[in-house]
């Protein structure tokens, strides 16, 4: 599953938001056997993106240099659709607070 999110944080995705995301993703990795969450910077309308990074890695996320107004693309690979939806829902809460 993938989806886009437009960055609203005026400071961009800096250490704290990236830290919150990394913690969240690490917890997902623990919770589900097969789970991978990636983040990239959107470059086309159909969720295409350039470099894709492991969202559990704070430096990788920060070095995407996402600014306010940029669109981030998230890729969630979970064990099943239900799990992916759960992850997406929790992640959106986190995004709306920190991103």
């Amino acid at each position: 599953m993938n989806f886009k999110y437009k960055i609203k944080n005026p400071c961009g995705v800096h250490a704290r938001p990236a830290g919150h995301l990394a913690t969240f993703v690490k917890n997902c990795n623990k919770k589900y056997d097969e789970c991978e969450i990636k983040i990239g910077k959107s470059i086309s309308a159909d969720c295409g993106c350039g470099d894709c990074k492991d969202a559990s890695q704070i430096l990788s996320v920060m070095s995407l240099g996402l600014k306010k107004g940029d669109e981030a693309v998230f890729y969630i690979y979970g064990p099943d659709e239900q799990a992916e939806n759960d992850i997406k829902r929790d992640m959106c809460d986190l995004l709306s607070e920190h991103f």
Binding site: R16, G19, D54, Q57, I58, L59, S60, S63
Partner: peptide, 16 residues
């Protein structure tokens, strides 16, 4: 305290 938590995450980063 949060700053030290962030520093830990950077050390754990595997790209680094």
């Amino acid at each position: 305290a949060m700053i030290f938590g962030v520093h830990k995450m950077i050390i754990e980063d595997y790209e680094y």
